[in-house]
């Protein structure tokens, strides 16, 4: 299934809807083009298993390959640390959303506001609402989701897809950073 309908049927957007990411290379190009990307990882990272491997492990692979700064929400920092990966920061999903809508915020390292905020693994409706907040109140920020669920409020979103396709997308993305293509 590859659909660009909102995953939760009632999450209908209005006039400004996400561009679908038709292949993982597009997402890779977006990340490479960004000067200050961050990746926000939510609590479903340890709940979703793709092809026998947890989402969080795919994310660690991707983060290591791409050197994207990871912000862990909820208690996910502990899960990253258990796996030997130190995220760049951790805070609540609402805190990171609230900072992203502030144009004066200088990012988690104090070196400048992010220009691309990626999200993965939050409860769908929470992620959707945060993306809506960013769409309205951070119009200069580009947002992208790496989930397998279409998010209309993002700037860019993967379509709805099976866990198998999701796993393939994340694996391809990681390989593109490793290979430098």
């Amino acid at each position: 299934m590859m659909s660009c309908e909102p995953w939760q049927c009632a999450e209908i957007a209005a006039t400004k809807k996400a561009n679908p990411i038709t292949k993982p290379e597009v997402a890779v190009a977006m990340i490479k083009r960004a000067a200050r990307p961050i990746l926000v990882v939510g609590s479903n990272a340890t709940e979703r298993s793709l092809e026998g491997k947890l989402l969080i492990d795919y994310i660690i692979d991707l983060a290591k390959a791409s050197n994207v700064q990871v912000v862990a929400t909820a208690h996910m920092v502990a899960e990253f640390l258990k796996r030997g990966y130190e995220p760049a920061d951790f805070m609540s999903a609402m805190d990171i959303g609230n900072r992203l809508v502030d144009p004066t915020w200088q990012g988690i390292d104090g070196k400048g506001h992010p220009d691309l905020a990626m999200f993965v693994g939050l409860p769908y409706y929470m992620e959707s609402l945060i993306l809506s907040g960013l769409k309205h109140f951070a119009p200069d920020l580009r947002t992208m989701t790496l989930d397998n669920l279409f998010h209309p409020h993002a700037s860019w979103s993967f379509p709805n897809a099976t866990p198998k396709v999701w796993a393939e997308n994340l694996t391809v993305m990681t390989s593109k950073f490793k290979g430098g293509n």
Binding site: G42, S43, T73, A74, H75, A78, S92, M94, L122, P123
Partner: peptide, 15 residues
């Protein structure tokens, strides 16, 4: 905070 959503019970306890 005065009003905040938390994601998990673990986060709720810390908060």
């Amino acid at each position: 905070h005065l009003f905040q959503t938390v994601e998990t019970p673990q986060e709720a306890m810390v908060s």
